[in-house]
Design a protein around this nucleic acid. Sequence first.
DNA 1: TCGTTGATTCAGCCACGCTTGAAACGTACG
DNA 2: CGTACGTTTCAAGCGTGGCTGAATCAACGA
Lengths: 126, 126
Amino acid sequence: MTPRTEVSERPAELADAIAATAAPARGTSPDAAEAGARDDALTVLQALADPVRWTVLDALAEQPRCVCDIQERVPVAGNLLSYHLKVLRDCGLVTTSRRGRWVDYSLAPDARGRMVASLPGAGGTP
Amino acid sequence: MTPRTEVSERPAELADAIAATAAPARGTSPDAAEAGARDDALTVLQALADPVRWTVLDALAEQPRCVCDIQERVPVAGNLLSYHLKVLRDCGLVTTSRRGRWVDYSLAPDARGRMVASLPGAGGTP
DNA sequence: TCGTTGATTCAGCCACGCTTGAAACGTACG
DNA sequence: CGTACGTTTCAAGCGTGGCTGAATCAACGA
């Protein structure tokens, strides 16, 4: 049977396997750095690849908006919208600030840069 | 209860609901066009948001490769790799050509353009 | 203080996409 | 021919991410 490699791995760990396979593991650091970049890219892309989150980011790219304002543009339940906003927060694509009872969401300063850098073939934006 | 809108919709149909909510439905065509662009963007992004497919595209961005060559860079079973390649083919990000027993895969000419255009906030690449 | 509104969190369910094993296809070589 | 190789397709199983309903928090006004 000689199982080649354990195939029940999470994205992050799969990245290690890919890195180990892609290059003969010459030094030590550059591979790990590329694996980290790939992980970050996948996190960003998985955040973008959802209709609700895509529409939210598209609206925020125009201008910052409070949650209730966003909700007018995205026909989903409040708690569900909050769930998607949390995903965007967790990967650092948006920033929040309280204003009275409302919470304003804006695109993070480096959001566009990270999105472009997440595309395959970017090679670290050279 | 007065259910606002049916919430059991696919990405494509959700786009219609979003388009209907985002703008007051002024004319007829521009909304549909934006909905179509959003759909295509989501299809592309969902294709990118997978470790295997991302690595494949990253390898193809460097140069065209045959399947067996790709397989050396992506540690997955052959049939699984074929499945992911089919996803990339179906959304037009890669093109194929037979060469004897082998099949060469290359990045589609407009792949990079479509990837960049799929990011939210692009607004049709103005 | 209480009630209301805006927003988030929690626990559970369910469908979809990824993965797998086996079989089928196309091509080259003996 | 038959065999071996590269690649694709098929029919399942399984796990995870998205959705829902109810509870919770945070801030303002009466």
